Each structure stands twice: as C-alpha cells, then as structure tokens.
Simulated scan of single mutants.
Amino acid sequence: MTGALVIIPARMAATRLPRKPLADICGKPMIVRVVEQALNADIGPVVVATDTQEIADAVEKAGCRAVLTRPDHPSGSDRIHEAVDLVDPDRTFDTVLNVQGDVPLIEPDAIRAALSPLSIPEVAIGTIVTEFTSAAFRDDPNFVKAIATPNGQGQLRTLYFSRATAPYGDGVFYHHIGIYAYRRAALAKFVSLPPAPLEQREKLEQLRALEAGMRIDASVISSAPMDVNTPDDLERARAAYQSL
C-alpha cells in the first residue's frame, strides 16, 4: 500500500475521564502521545481533528498539526470526513486512516496493519482484530466481537460485528479494535448513509457499512492496545510510559 492521511478525532465529551485528550501522560497530553505513535507508523501526515480550540492548541504547541471541525457531527467518521476535505482538498491521498485519540500505547505496527487489507481491490475498509485470551472479556458486551473468516490472503473477511459472544461453538473469538483504513470514496459513501437498523440495535457504527454491502477486512495483531477511558486506565498508561 502507498501512504495514507492519518486523522485522529478528539473531543472533550468524555464523562468518565473529564478533559481526556489533555490528560497528562509523563509530561505530554494524551492526544500528543497518540500523535507520536501515529507518526512512528510512518505512513503519511498525521492530523488531529477536533472541535475544541484548547485541544488544537496543545497539539500545535507540540509541533504537530490540528484542524478545527464543526461541533455538531453525529460521529467520529463525520468529523474525519470533514477534516480530510479541509486538510487535503486536492485529493492527494486516496486512503484515510482513522486512529482513535485514546490509545496512547498503540504500536505503530498495529496502525500499519489496518492498511494491509486494502491491498485487495474489493475491500472498502480495513481494520484490525486480535484473539480473545480472556473468557471474561470475550463475554463482556463492552468488547466488540468480529465474526470473520479467512480471506485467502492472510487476513480475515468480516461478516458481522456484535456485542454478543459469537460465533457459536469451539474456535477462536476475535476482538475488534476500532481503527479503520478507508478508501476515500468509501468514507464519503459511509457518511452519506443513514444509520442502519442493526447498527442502531448493536450500537456499532461499522454495521452501517456491512448493511450497505461494503466489504470490511481485518488484519490480526498479537494483542489489543489499551484504551484510556477511566482514571485507573490513565494510571496504567502512565506506569507503562514510565517503564519504557
């Protein structure tokens, strides 16, 4: 794959961890730590898309790039779509990679892995999964399951995503990690679609794409990056950075 434009959406809306993007992790705001990991992936320019000037200021103070987007977007995908058109109006990049702003410990290899499925022309969206190693996490509806089958080219073709424990029977269960590589046309199509019935039922945005017939394939990575949603998560992330 050629390079991609990396967009990291960031808002102040978190309630469990107020002002989450600006939470300090060993001297730097969390959003800056995520940008650094995305830059280490070395796949293209990295831009934070935010509706908050304070977040943009923090990113730019660190020497990175941010763009202000509208505050009324219904989803991160809509925010990314606006940001892409603002940052790249000449359409230099045909691929857009969405990295969540609360994964300061994500490995650069995991970011690059989301791009790999787009080597298949029929794939509209690439993403990543990892095998569940904990039955408790596997059965927890907060951990999204990817129901997928080998695509014959070293990755998986996803057939469904669910909060339920699926599929039935013995075998591997895949944990879906919400990092997406979009073909630019696929991102434009996705945000033009209305919310879909299964998307609303499961509260999983990616089902909108599957319901519309868009193909999503996934690379399997070795372990899930820890996302930061609570004060305890933040302390674990700080401890991890201190040990580096």
Rank of each mutant, 00 (worst) to 15 (best):
I128W: 00
A124M: 08
S192W: 02
I179W: 15
L115H: 03
D140W: 12
A113T: 13
A110R: 06
Y168Q: 05
A110W: 02
S192H: 03
F132I: 14
F143P: 13
R138P: 00
L187I: 04
S192I: 03
A185I: 08
N142M: 14
A185Q: 13
D140V: 12
K145C: 13
T149K: 06
A114M: 11
A185S: 13
G178L: 08
F190I: 09
G126R: 13
N151Y: 12
T133D: 09
Y174V: 14
I147H: 11
I179Q: 11
L159S: 12
G169E: 11
Y182I: 01
T127I: 04
A114Q: 08
P141Y: 15
Y182H: 01
P167R: 07
L159F: 04
R138S: 04
N142W: 15
A135H: 02
I179A: 12
F190L: 09
A188I: 08
A188V: 10
A113Y: 01
N142A: 13
I147P: 01
A136K: 00
R184C: 07
R112D: 08
D170H: 04
L115S: 09
A164F: 06
G171E: 10
A110G: 15
R184Q: 04
S192N: 04
G178A: 12
G169S: 09
T149L: 14
P150K: 10
S119I: 07
R163P: 03
F161N: 04
P141R: 12
R157C: 05
Y168D: 01
F161M: 10
P121K: 09
R163F: 05
D139H: 07
R184I: 06
R138Q: 08
K189I: 14
A113C: 10
S119K: 13
V172H: 10
L187W: 04
D170E: 07
K145P: 02
L156Y: 15
P150F: 15
P150W: 12
Q153Y: 14
A148L: 05
L156K: 13
A124P: 02
Q155H: 11
T127D: 02
P150G: 11
D140S: 15
T158I: 01
I177Q: 06
A188N: 14
S162P: 12
A146N: 08
G152D: 13
R157F: 00
P121I: 08
Q155C: 14
V191L: 08
Y180P: 09
I177R: 04
Y182T: 02
D170R: 02
T130W: 01
A166C: 08
A186S: 02
P150C: 11
A181D: 00
A136C: 03
I128L: 03
Q153H: 14
K189N: 14
G171Y: 03
G178C: 11
A114I: 11
V172C: 10
P117D: 05
I120T: 06
A166P: 02
S116K: 03
R112C: 07
D109G: 12
A164K: 05
A186W: 00
T149I: 15
A166M: 06
P121W: 00
V123Y: 11
A135I: 05
S134F: 02
I179R: 12
Y182C: 05
T149D: 13
I177Y: 03
R112W: 15
D170L: 10
R138F: 01
V129D: 01
H175C: 06
H176D: 05
V191Q: 08
I125H: 15
A164G: 15
G178T: 06
E131G: 06
A113R: 12
D109N: 14
A146F: 05
P150H: 11
E122G: 03
T127Q: 02
A186V: 07
Y160C: 09
D170C: 14
